[in-house]
Write a protein that binds this DNA or RNA. Structure first.
Lengths: 228, 228
DNA sequence: TTGCCCTAACTGTGATCTCAGATCGCGCGC
DNA sequence: GCGCGCGATCTGAGATCACAGTTAGGGCAA
């Protein structure tokens, strides 16, 4: 290594607050955090081995992203949406995620299409795992590969915030059988989605995403999970 | 007042962090904060008469909302968007704000329609003021009355975050003449918008909002304000 | 004059403490 | 048995301090 070597990437360590934010994000998306769960900051700080400051920062971020709410007694919690609010969230997701899917069908690079195929295969494989985490993660990865292929960073951020709100509801820990029935539907729709992108068919891509979102939402709304 | 009196609203004082967040939000939306402006937290804390803690919280929120960015040297700043990024932001705004306008045209209550008329009149009046603040505020109020009439709280929050990003660019302090030319266009489009809502015409409402957003964006892009 | 180095000041991040409000549990009185 | 009051504990918000990285300015050498 000489002084002419320009290939060294500058090292930037993620702040503790960012790391806490990432950890909480993962807990929201995976369903580990459930609607109405409290987030006791001192306890979480102890659990993560940091002081309360980075936890506060991370929580403040997630409150701003509407992924957490401050209750009237100042407690911070995962929002418990009413059925109506969940429907609203679903509609806004459909509106933005179908748009991203259509853009992706038009703009995806060959490498992105290949990555989508791989993600589809990975999702299928994750369905065989005994616990839900691999399939939840594989589902998220496939969707975000798709949305990133839309070529709109702003749209991806909008969708990311929506997923933070939806994650605890959609990924509630279900019994194995229920989950298997649910994800078989997604499996088929993901297949159609990837085919639509390959075929450069924006309408089919949007339709597949919409069906995926709606089937997941109808499943939640068909069960007595959310208050009226 | 007796012990049977149920009309007393519980008093809840906004936290200092929330107040700082509101103050910064206003500064972003009004154009007082410009792209690439730094936000020195200690200085702002002193200026607002609080310690640095609530400023940190507020800044963390706005970073999460993408309204502020953390630079590689850790400084917090108003994002300086490239022309491409601004176009992306504009497209996502069009996609969501037209949707909200169409929903509003379908769902607005008579009271909301009346409030829109009033906001239109207030905007016209604010155009006569010698400085830009009243018209910037009146513009925002009219738009958010409209979007709230859509009946989708999630959609309003998405739009709010988009406005936080767009505010510093769109509301850059302009000379009087330039601003007058700009806002005369908005004036006409706002009129069409209110008529479309009154007429329950979703397509006309969406078209008016799109034209409003695009004309403001094209104005910015036509000037050498943003980097390529 | 220019470039490099050093030092002081600035700045965000994290730690810790204090305060005030909320909650919970227990005891007492009706 | 139930309700109320009190005290202890918990909890988030705010203040303050320390640390480490960054920046800017000044001085010196080539």
């Amino acid at each position: 290594m000489t002084s002419q070597d320009k290939t060294i990437t500058p090292l930037r360590v993620a702040s503790l607050a960012s790391q806490v934010h990432d950890a909480l994000t993962e807990m929201l998306l995976s369903g580990e955090l459930r609607p109405d769960d409290r987030i006791p900051m001192r306890e979480l700080a102890e659990r993560l081995g940091v002081s309360v400051m980075p936890v506060r920062d991370a929580v403040a971020r997630l409150v701003a992203q509407q992924a957490l709410v401050v209750l009237p007694n100042r407690a911070v919690a995962v929002p418990l949406l009413t059925r109506g609010q969940f429907r609203d969230l679903t509609e806004v997701r459909v509106h933005n995620e179908t748009h991203a899917a259509a853009l992706a069908a038009r703009h995806a690079t060959p490498a992105q299409v290949a990555a989508l195929r791989q993600a589809d295969a990975a999702f299928a494989q994750a369905l065989g795992a005994p616990d839900a985490k691999p399939s939840v993660r594989a589902n998220k990865e496939l969707h975000f590969l798709l949305y990133e292929a839309a070529g709109s960073a702003v749209l991806v951020e909008v969708i990311r915030a929506l997923w933070l709100k939806a994650g605890p509801i959609i990924n509630l820990d279900l019994e194995q059988d229920t989950r298997r029935r649910r994800t078989a539907v997604s499996r088929a729709l993901h297949g159609q989605l990837v085919q639509a992108v390959e075929a450069r068919d924006p309408q089919a891509a949007a339709d597949a995403v919409e069906a995926d979102i709606r089937s997941a939402a109808e499943f939640i709304l068909s069960r007595d999970i959310l208050p009226a």
